[in-house]
């Protein structure tokens, strides 16, 4: 997030931009929360530059390890980063509104809606497009991680635990956080101390 750009753009404008962006996301994300991760990566990191990829990683980690739907968590977090508490509330409301509105409209005739072959055909196409988007986000986010053997192993292990063994993503993320504290935090400090002791 460009701190300079943030200072120049008025609060009203930032809130309006958040409303439009998250309203759009709320209207086109289908199914699981990772479709919104792909949209954030494309629109906010690549196109608009509101977030850095590192910040997106942090937001997903926090969204995945706190209660609530990940799409809502990321909307609140991004809104807060760009426009404070009000921004968090506005982005969340904008994300929720289209989803709420669609159900309010459709609830009266949902069986007819569900069994309509044209709706089903469009949805099938959208579902495949969403998978392509998520796969693309996977490749791009993968490039944002340093290429080390231990990172590759952590990534493969997380994939296998969730995709193949059906573990809850929460525990996998908590495992990743603990791994990080030990591998990137404690271990270098122990090594540093030993090196210091050896030099003396």
């Amino acid at each position: 997030m460009g701190a300079g750009a943030e200072g120049q753009v008025s609060l009203g404008r930032r809130l309006w931009a958040l409303t439009l962006t998250f309203g759009k996301f709320g209207g086109i994300t289908f199914g699981g929360g990772y479709a919104i991760v792909a949209l954030l990566e494309e629109e906010l990191v690549r196109k608009k530059g509101w977030l850095t990829q590192d910040e997106l990683f942090n937001i997903i980690t926090i969204g995945e390890s706190t209660p609530g739907p990940i799409a809502v968590n990321t909307a609140t977090f991004v809104g807060y980063r760009l426009a404070g508490v009000l921004g968090g509330v506005v982005a969340t409301a904008a994300l929720v509104f289209p989803a709420w509105l669609v159900i309010v409209v459709v609830s009266g005739f949902y069986l007819a809606f569900r069994e309509n072959t044209w709706v089903a055909a469009a949805l099938a196409g959208i579902r495949v497009a969403a998978i392509v988007l998520i796969a693309r986000a996977f490749l791009r986010m993968g490039q944002g991680v340093p290429r080390t053997a231990v990172n590759a192993a952590a990534c493969a292990l997380a994939f296998a635990l969730v995709a193949l063994l059906g573990c809850n993503a929460l525990w996998v993320v908590v495992g990743g956080l603990l791994f990080g504290v030990l591998w990137h935090g404690v271990l270098p400090r122990l090594r540093g101390r030993r090196a210091e002791g050896g030099a003396r």
Partner: peptide, 29 residues
């Protein structure tokens, strides 16, 4: 430092989760 280290460690895990989301959805489809 511990918070930064923890988030650094979660990065490859998040990538794995995104991959598994794509994989699972693809399987269902």
């Amino acid at each position: 430092w511990a918070v930064r280290a923890a988030l650094e460690g979660a990065k490859p895990v998040v990538v794995g989760l995104i991959g598994s989301a794509a994989f699972t959805l693809l399987g269902h489809t």
